[in-house]
Nucleic acid binder design. Structure first.
Lengths: 337, 337
DNA sequence: GGCACAATGCTCATATTGAGCATAAGTGAG
DNA sequence: CTCACTTATGCTCAATATGAGCATTGTGCC
């Protein structure tokens, strides 16, 4: 940035000149994503204050005056808690709901500014408290790579019951529409980007333990069906991140942030599939990548593994300049696996 | 929402239990968009604290404890300042850079959570201090509907000079690459979604008065070229909103939030063109809308105007349920107008 | 009626997809 | 060494989608 601005010295964003008339506590949260061995992983940490005991959380910490920017503050917290350096970082969403944050008592707001980060390698998690987890452990219904997940039978049955429960037929109808939209029930189609909407629906329907008190006793489903819980509202943040990432890989070449310097086209495909939770047609995928000019060949080939060796390629950084908006326009294969 | 959560009562997002250890001032800002007579408009208000005097700003106000959620707080501020009720609202971005907000003195952060709102009708702005402004008055280089804006000649010359100025050839090269990417110079293509990147580049290059002190004296360009200034960093917020909206209309049917209950296909096209700043091929546009099933015919037709009367149509809300991700995959017509 | 003007209908060449067949080039078993 | 197996890679083909333009249809206005 160039020049300091003194125009605004004496005024806040709102145009008022008081000294912090209504302070809020601002937290920073990070969803740090990697993909190794064809599995999508998020970096999690131990959470001490959590009554549930075993639920893990995302790297997070409060914004303090020492942080020059939000993003720098986030990087500092992540490095401190996980010893992981971040490369690609983008802002995700700012969460501020009173009822979800659970901070209504103090009479002031507590916001969480969430970020999405993509990292290349999974170092074996420098700290014992930090570890990489397959994100589908938290949202198992999102993984359609081996076809429709069986747990969806159970989930759908409960959701339909939830939709049918209101006395008011109009409200019942509205709930059914939402089911169709998000879970593809009643003739709707499954859209892999609606991760957050699905999680929120499950939350409202009472199938998410985090929605009930700390005991989780009121929750009628088990973890095998609705996934492992997370501390605070971090599963919601994770769902937001996955949805955003699934959308973004279709029009920006962000997947390459997850790849090593050289890789095979099939590894790339596996990574995209891991993120999107669907399967792609192999030949068409390589055609797409080729014609978009996203990669260039190296002279290396794979070895050791079974099957014909594959050529190693690398990301062509030049496409960022050439094409107006490169990325994958991926479309799931119709065949179930 | 269903149940209150007491799990988190005693902890903040970060897992610490202090009472607001590091407070921040949080502001809410709204970019409220309407499209009337084929022009894109944003709702602006008078800003009192602004030394520059005439620069207007976006509706904004601090987040206070009385606000149940961020979005509700935003709606309250907007209604108070502009008498405009909001329908469609989505979160845009949270701005928190020290150097841009100009609040480093106090030793605490001041964030702005920005929202994008789309409204149907332009009521003649209930309050005198609030008025609708064509958004291209603030970002004139973004309007390509009548072909490439002439002012870009001037802008490009200055940007090229800026890129050439560093002694370090590497840095110079990097600047040129950015120019190619954002402004389509040096063989690059113009991408109408990169509104924010273009504004930021101009800001860095010193062509935006807001980047210099309150006088604007150091700014080598005039308003006719680089657009009318706004208070604070609100032009950056506006640029963010336009970029987001231009992207979103391609895959979600959000334009209809700007349309009256019934409208003609050409009015719809004019609105899309106004937002995207480009021209579309008329026949292909209607084919697209038709085959996506986005609208249904009414039995009304236009009258009074010259030319053959047009059929009035309405938005088919059902598509939200049917199609996985409806929207316009608009592509600019090649011919310059 | 004849014009100007916009709405609407239709054609056509060219990409872009979705799906699958065929072949190539390795590994390991016998 | 040859076969079975596995994965990589090349290529075809039909179905759609897209970009561009021509033709026709209704209206208000002289």
């Amino acid at each position: 940035m160039t020049t300091a601005q003194d125009t605004q010295r004496e005024t806040t964003q709102s145009g008022e000149a008081h000294a912090v008339p209504n302070p809020s506590a601002v937290g920073l949260v990070a969803v740090i994503v990697a993909a190794t061995d064809g599995e999508p992983r998020a970096l999690t940490v131990e959470v001490e204050g959590q009554a549930a005991g075993r639920a893990r959380g995302l790297p997070a910490g409060p914004l303090v005056p020492e942080h020059p920017t939000l993003e720098r503050g986030l990087r500092a917290w992540v490095e401190r808690q996980t010893h992981q350096r971040l490369g690609y970082v983008e802002q995700l969403y700012t969460f501020g709901d009173r009822d979800r944050q659970g901070d209504e008592s103090a009479g002031l707001h507590s916001l969480s500014v969430a970020y999405l980060a993509l990292v290349r390698e999974v170092r074996p998690a420098g700290l014992a408290e930090a570890s990489w987890r397959n994100w589908y452990g938290y949202l198992p219904w999102e993984d359609w790579r081996a076809g429709r997940p069986a747990i969806l039978d159970d989930i759908e049955a409960r959701l339909l019951a939830w939709a049918a429960s209101p006395a008011d037929p109009k409200q019942s109808r509205r709930r059914q529409d939402r089911l169709a939209l998000t879970f593809g029930l009643c003739g709707g189609a499954w859209n892999e980007e609606r991760v957050l909407e699905r999680y929120e629906l499950l939350f409202e329907a009472g199938l998410i333990p985090e929605a009930h008190g700390q005991s989780g006793a009121a929750c009628p489903t088990d973890i095998a069906t609705t996934g492992e819980p997370m501390a605070f509202d971090h599963r919601r943040v994770l769902a937001t991140a996955i949805g955003r990432l699934r959308g973004k890989i279709k029009y920006r070449p962000v997947v390459f942030e997850l790849m090593p310097p050289t890789f095979t086209l099939f590894q790339l495909q596996r990574t995209v599939e891991a993120l999107s939770g669907t399967n792609l047609h192999k030949q068409n995928f390589r055609r797409l990548v080729a014609q978009q000019g996203l990669v260039e060949e190296t002279d290396g080939v794979t070895s050791g593994a079974t099957g014909r060796p594959a050529r190693l390629v690398r990301f062509r950084r030049e496409v960022l300049l050439e094409r107006p908006a490169p990325g994958f326009r991926l479309r799931a294969s119709r065949r179930p696996a």
